[in-house]
Write a protein that binds this DNA or RNA. Structure first.
Lengths: 232, 232
DNA sequence: GCAAAAGTGTTCTAGGTACACCCATGT
DNA sequence: ACATGGGTGTACCTAGAACACTTTTGC
């Protein structure tokens, strides 16, 4: 009798969101990390995140945390998985819903937050030690991103509105960590008919200007029917 | 100052797990549902699930709920996604971590639970009205299962230890909801070299006996390297 | 001998992979 | 004229898709 009523409050849990925000800088994939300002693990690096409020959806909480760190509203954000080992946080039981997000490097403007000492981008291959199970979360996010690249258009989220085919190919190469054949890449990308020539050209050095393209689809699309992008 | 301490208890949330348990009966994919014994929605059908306890991992909570319904310990269980709209439960804010699970029809033994009036299998194509967002969760589980079938060996979880190639093909056909070519199916399945002839034969009617196979790998494997099973 | 499911190979086609040279520009 | 990255086409090969008949058994 009493058990049912006693159990109720006991079952309430702390729920957080953590976001693995990727961008590309200097030809490498980077992840945004926050240096913790408060114990536990004060000074250690962690993923941006925080508590889910009672009046917002979990997705909204992730978006909000991201905005508080980066000042950016519209990023591509996708739920990854929920991590719920009872001892993953030493203070108390915390269940976290992990997300990953992609942002074009031109749009990033970091903003220090009150409860974080500093925010910085780290190359995903050279991460500092991370608190809790955040290393595992980043590894999982990277795995998901690598898979997703093969059959969706998530890569475009890492590029500015207009980009050249070579820049696009670089994004694929950086994420997949392997070189791709230029002719095969272009052939495949263009025959998908998802890119539109922007009309303009871009010239970086003393060479032939590169044609600029845009991705007119509103968001990320899955290419199951159109033709899979896969291993090239 | 006071804010930080006040916010803390407010941020505690009710967290549940819900499991979409699939099995195959009568050549159709079925889902296990529970008829609610208590308000709200008393008498309505819902996915099996319950609160995550403070001392167990979220995965363990899903396993425990499943055991309480089916009496079965080792099922294939995979986290699907977390559903966290603030108004998905009319009583209060409940965040649920959804799972899907697969079980061989021979191993299912339903057991009525104290807080559920009844448990029953429903064809996934003829579900009754479901409470909360459970209809959406089932749809998502089905989508995941259909994808997963193409590049993993999850299907074997729906079959007994020993099975014929025709039975295996039926499982694929039922899940994908399309007919497959017998010769191409067998060719592809056998060249993956993941099946072992069990030695025995199975005969159902007045026809040639079918060779029995087993799947010796301990669990579900991903076929990325071995060769993708995909659309046949 | 007939009904009913088990079992078996080949051809065609599409798409992935490998590969090398000319083009436009700035200095 | 040369250095630099942009841009283009073909041949080969593998894997998926389509397709029909023989085998084994019970009645």
């Amino acid at each position: 009798m009493q058990r049912a009523t006693v159990n109720f409050p006991i079952n309430r849990q702390a729920v957080t969101v953590d976001v693995v925000l990727f961008t590309i800088q200097e030809d490498r994939l980077h992840v945004l990390l926050i240096q913790r300002k408060h114990p536990p693990f004060k000074g250690a690096w962690a993923l941006p995140g925080g508590f889910v409020r009672r009046d917002e959806s979990v997705d909204d909480a992730a978006l909000r945390e991201l905005q508080e760190e980066t000042n950016v509203r519209s990023v591509y954000l996708e739920q990854l998985a929920t991590f719920g080992e009872p001892d993953r946080d030493p203070r108390e039981r915390v269940i976290t819903v992990a997300y990953y997000a992609l942002i074009n490097w031109e749009r990033v403007q970091l903003k220090a937050r009150t409860d974080a000492a500093a925010a910085a981008w780290f190359p995903v291959k050279q991460l500092p030690p991370l608190v809790f199970d955040h290393k595992q979360i980043v590894a999982y996010a990277l795995e998901r991103l690598r898979h997703k690249v093969n059959y969706t258009t998530v890569c475009f989220q890492l590029l500015p509105k207009q980009f050249t085919l070579t820049e696009l190919q670089r994004v694929y190469e950086i994420i997949l960590d392997q070189q791709l054949d230029k002719r095969n890449f272009r052939k495949k990308m263009l025959q998908l008919k998802i890119l539109k020539a922007a009309g303009g050209f871009k010239q970086e050095g003393p060479q032939r200007p590169a044609r600029l393209y845009t991705f007119p689809e509103p968001k990320v699309i899955t290419l199951q029917e159109k033709g899979i992008l896969v291993p090239f």
